[in-house]
Computed example of a mutant assay.
Amino acid sequence: MASPSPPLHPATILCIYFVLPAFAELQRLQHQPKHDGSLNFLVIGDWGRKGKYNQSLVATQMGKMGDKLDLDFVVSTGDNFYNSGIKGLNDPIFIQSFSNIYTAKSLRKPWYSVLGNHDYRGNALAQVSPILRKIDRRWFCQRSFVLHAGVADFFFIDTTPFMNKYFNNSNRHYDWRGVLPRQKYLKNLLKDLEEALVKSSARWKIVVGHHAIRSIGHHGDSVELIKLLVPLFEANNVDMYMNGHDHCLQHISSINSPLLYLTSGAGSKAWRGDVKESHSGVKFFYDGQGFMSVQITETDAKFAFYNVSGDQIHHWTVTKPIMHTVA
């Protein structure tokens, strides 16, 4: 009888689970919507600072709004833990910046998250590990994945590897395990994203990433994403792209399509004070802390931005008429 194989070291398990699937088809999740088919969720980004820079105050207002909306889940647009992600599975910053901050009952729902560039400065494999869900079961973070939620499909994409500056800057460490070779990673991600968008028959198609495509905030437009992602979005009728990275709240409309560019990256440190020349499609810009709420039905999507005091500072509605087939 053959002797049993020795147990795998935890680090080996992590590498098998996360490095090999980097070139696999996007993971797909199902989220059951309400009985009437509607979805209510909050969007927050750039938040994890152990409650500092008004993170705790924003969290309090999120909890209040979550109660009013009967929340389904929370979307996190990345840069979840500052300044350099998490060090490992036992890093106390996970509890200090997440579990101990977002304590409202209404926020005890799934948190669907992507990585930001600051998260890549730490142990990226640890942050996307399912082991973290044993610490806080709300947490779900992957590099890229698809969330099917009835009336809407969400496509979470890993934008940091698209950005040339992180590979040209040798002064900082980034955890590229599972990403290199970079061009192969991006080629496979774009292929899988396009296939998922084409196959989607959802009424609403929503893409979530960390970096802004269009922005008048500190970081401005992302030329790499404009070149590689926008044509995919326009060809496949994506309704909106949600991001963080710029520490502000923004509503920008495309001048070429119905596509919306929505920034919610104001979860903690904000007020940078530098605004670039305005795009023609800019509808709203706010440089302070806050978050976004979204309410979606088959025919309507209602959006609102809230500041650190819970005041609604901008809102609008997008209507999508139902097309009836004539026999």
Rank of each mutant, 00 (worst) to 15 (best):
D153C: 06
S257N: 12
E224W: 07
Q312I: 10
V282T: 05
G267C: 07
L193E: 09
H31Y: 12
S201W: 00
A327Q: 12
A2K: 03
T160F: 10
V19N: 05
T297N: 02
L147G: 04
T297L: 08
R121W: 11
H31V: 14
V179K: 06
P110H: 01
A235W: 02
V223Q: 14
T160D: 04
G281P: 11
Q289E: 15
P4C: 10
T60K: 11
R172S: 06
F41T: 08
F154A: 09
N188E: 13
R177N: 05
V114C: 02
Q55M: 12
T297E: 12
F162P: 04
V146F: 09
D192W: 14
T325Y: 00
A11T: 05
A59Q: 04
G63H: 04
V74K: 02
R121S: 13
V238R: 05
S268P: 15
A327D: 04
T317E: 12
P161I: 09
L228A: 15
F162N: 00
T103L: 01
S200T: 02
Y120S: 07
M240P: 07
L180A: 05
I101F: 01
P21H: 03
R272F: 09
V179G: 03
K302A: 09
M62P: 05
A2N: 15
L39A: 04
H173F: 14
L232W: 08
G116N: 03
Q61Y: 00
L29A: 09
L125E: 08
L249A: 13
L115T: 02
P7Q: 09
D70E: 12
F98A: 02
K191V: 12
N100C: 03
I313L: 03
H245L: 13
S200Q: 09
I16V: 11
K302P: 01
L125R: 05
A124T: 06
T263P: 15
V294K: 00
I131M: 06
G37I: 14
V198W: 14
N237H: 14
L57G: 07
K302M: 02
S56Q: 01
H247I: 15
G288N: 04
N171T: 13
G78F: 01
G78P: 03
G116E: 13
K276H: 12
D192A: 08
G290L: 12
K184T: 15
S254G: 10
G265V: 13
D246F: 11
S76A: 07
S309V: 00
V74H: 00
F285Y: 15
F98W: 05
V294Q: 11
L89W: 00
L260V: 12
I101G: 02
G88S: 11
R49V: 03
D246C: 10
P6A: 08
A22Y: 09
G265C: 10
F154I: 10
N100T: 06
G267K: 10
L29T: 11
T160H: 12
I86K: 01
Y102N: 00
N117K: 07
F155S: 05
L29E: 13
A126P: 06
L107V: 01
N307V: 01
R177E: 13
F285D: 13
G150F: 10
G116Y: 02
D70A: 10
S99T: 15
V128G: 00
D91Y: 06
G220A: 11
G88H: 03
N168T: 09
S129N: 06
P6T: 07
F98Y: 13
P110M: 05
L197K: 02
L189N: 03
S5Q: 07
M62A: 00
V179S: 04
Y241F: 15
C248D: 14
